[in-house]
Design a protein around this nucleic acid. Structure first.
Length: 581
RNA sequence: UUCCCGGUAGUGUAACGGUAGCACAAAAGACUCUGGAUCUUUUUGUGGGGGUUCAAAUCCUCCCCGGGAAACCA
């Protein structure tokens, strides 16, 4: 990438461009780096969500676009929070998203010895010292005085630690004894000797190592001192020859420290660039809140289809392609932003529309009886599998004189602009026949329509109108005798509020969960061909939405998750009509 | 409170001193055997005040607003 001449012209359509990609190109052009290598550094302490997907796509994407590689590296330097279980879950999620890293899977814990040696090197250079101050004292000396109540703290000038001028030899001996396990947790730390008056608090002699007699998920009990993120991360990047270390914005203030360690060690200097993390409307993204939802049983688990986690989205029926498309459309910037979840849904619809098999399913069935249909007669109707993809072919669906149609497709008295079934009106049964409604039978107690009667025009077989009559509505159906019962789970936004993280005073945020975020429909019916569907299989249920077979399914009892509904023009009309009166 | 980073239609993102564009959303229409899809069209924007310049979203300055940080977490 040294094509200076084209730098002023617009990028090719579809080629992503943003301030980070621009910076990478400049670094190549200026000779700061001669190649591009990135890394994606998850901490194995939780499940991935779609915000992580943004970073994953960025790191792997930029590497690929520049002929480089992206290292997959676990930032596992806090044994108290990290577990092997998460390593596996994260690995599976990234693979599912569609990225490969071959042999380039690393662990920061794999660098512990090298990191330790660099710690000694800084001590020898007089740039690090062992400090005996406890946690509270360190805070006080740093100048950050935590108030007893509330989050407000006061920043004061920092003071040098009384241990700051320890002799090199003493520091070395103490650091070695720290490693040897001679001191209890928290007794001492190794600190960088920088500047206690620095306006950036991270530069006021930050802690490099702390003592933790804890078992690490990979190194076991071989270490009782663990490096801090600020010390570990730049050095791990350096070891791996990472050129561009891309991270979210909260690390921006850490960058001077990142640079300080690399400069003072005189080792390969990676460049850290920060970007704004992703937020979505109608959901929450923070690990803590997500965890609380799970712990409190407000959702069924990390993979609840309402969760913005990758496992949740997968179970919901999202495709990796749609998520990657979404991420690229969202773009990269430093502006704190909240993306409309409608964009995510749009990306899924667009992807699934092209490649999903259609099927007919009735969520809330009402019986339709064709009065002039010969008793017991069954005929096979040919139905197109995907109008967007002729190569998908067609299938047959059994048709009889007793069908189920959607409750919502019948009214005794039609509202304005309603052109589905009501007495006297005709509709087309998708791919089958044009029928005319002759009446409805209602439950005398509830007034609910129990049965719809109609007559069928045999000349319209296949749904054609030989006389060219206009039939405004086409509705879906299944044969009452052939269709199979299934459970459908209809999902909506987890929170009704657009920005659930803004909680009104006096309200528990968990009580703002959308009570309609999950509707379980037990008596749905689907066409018989779906009997063999397997978990993960996706369908478009005509006129309803995209559905995926859930893992809760068992042979003979299928469960479908609604991934996303189809756009519903009628719902908008109905809403508008209702608002208008 | 201190420090850091940001503010472009409703939302997200381009424009890199020279015509403010794209996507989603919203709205209108066309077409349609999914009120789907597709196609056409429309509405809405540079946070505010000062400067510099022939020319400012872009450069300078003050103000306002938003986000982040102030862990022996990452």
């Amino acid at each position: 990438m040294t094509d200076h001449s084209s730098s002023g012209s617009a990028p090719a359509p579809g080629a992503p461009s943003d301030f980070i990609r621009d910076a990478v190109k400049q670094d190549l052009a200026s000779g700061r780096f001669t190649y591009v290598r990135t890394r994606w550094p998850p901490e194995p302490n939780g499940y991935l969500h779609i915000g992580h997907a943004k970073a994953i796509c960025l790191d792997f994407g930029i590497a690929a676009e520049n002929g480089g590689v992206c290292n997959f590296r676990f930032d596992d330097t806090n044994p108290e929070k990290e577990e092997q279980e998460y390593v596996e879950a994260i690995t599976a999620d990234v693979r599912w998203l569609g990225f490969e890293w071959g042999e380039r899977e690393f662990f920061a814990s794999g660098y512990f010895e090298q990191l330790y040696q660099w710690g000694e090197q800084l001590i020898q250079a007089g740039k690090a010292y062992v400090c005996d101050l406890n946690e509270q004292e360190i805070r006080e000396y740093r100048g950050t005085d935590v108030a007893d109540k509330g989050p407000i703290t006061v920043t004061l000038p920092g003071r040098n630690s009384p241990y700051r001028e320890r002799a090199v030899e003493e520091n070395l001996e103490l650091f070695r004894r720290m490693r040897a396990g001679e001191f209890p947790d928290g007794a001492r730390t190794l600190r960088a000797k920088i500047d206690m008056a620095h306006p950036n608090l991270h530069m006021r002699d930050p802690v490099m190592y702390r003592i933790r007699h804890a078992t690490h998920h990979r190194t076991g009990d071989s270490w009782c001192i663990y490096p801090m993120y600020d010390f570990q991360h730049p050095l791990s990047d350096s070891i791996e020859g990472v050129t561009h270390s891309l991270c979210s914005q909260e690390y921006e203030i850490h960058r001077p420290l990142y640079d300080w360690f690399l400069e003072n060690l005189g080792i390969f200097h990676s460049r850290q660039i920060e970007f704004a993390r992703l937020n979505l409307t109608h959901t929450v993204m923070s690990k803590r809140w997500l965890l609380e939802l799970v712990k409190d049983g407000r959702v069924r688990g990390w993979d609840d289809p309402r969760m913005p986690t990758l496992v949740g989205l997968r179970r919901r029926g999202y495709t990796p392609e749609s998520i990657r498309d979404f991420v690229s459309r969202v773009g990269m910037s430093k502006t704190p932003s909240t993306v409309d979840i409608a964009l995510l849904e749009h990306c899924l619809r667009e992807d699934l529309n092209k490649r999903c098999m259609r099927a007919m399913a009735v969520l809330k069935p009402v019986k339709l009886v064709i009065e002039n249909w010969p008793a017991g007669k069954v005929t096979q109707i040919e139905a197109v599998n995907n109008p967007e993809d002729p190569s998908a072919g067609s299938r047959t669906v059994p048709f009889t004189g007793e069908l189920y149609i959607e409750q919502d497709d019948v009214r005794e008295i039609p509202p304005p602009k309603y052109y589905r079934l009501y007495p006297g009106n005709q509709v087309r049964l998708r791919y089958a026949y044009i029928v005319t409604c002759t009446g409805v039978r209602k439950d005398p107690a509830t007034g609910e329509i129990r049965e719809v009667m109609c007559t069928c025009d045999p000349a319209t077989r296949g749904g054609n109108a030989p006389d060219n009559r206009k039939v405004k509505a086409t509705i879906h159906w299944v044969s009452a005798g052939h269709s199979i019962p299934v459970e459908a789970r209809l999902y909506d936004h987890l929170f009704t509020a657009e920005l659930p993280q803004i909680v009104p005073a006096g309200v528990d945020w968990m009580d703002t969960i959308n009570p309609a975020s999950l509707e379980t429909v037990k008596g749905a019916r689907v066409e018989p061909g779906l009997a063999r569907a397997l978990p993960g299989d996706r369908f478009q249920f005509e006129r309803l939405g995209y559905f995926v077979v859930d893992q809760d399914s068992a042979p003979g009892s299928l469960v479908f998750n609604r991934s996303v509904s189809l756009k519903d023009a009628w719902a908008r009309i109905e809403k508008k009509e209702a608002a208008g009166r």
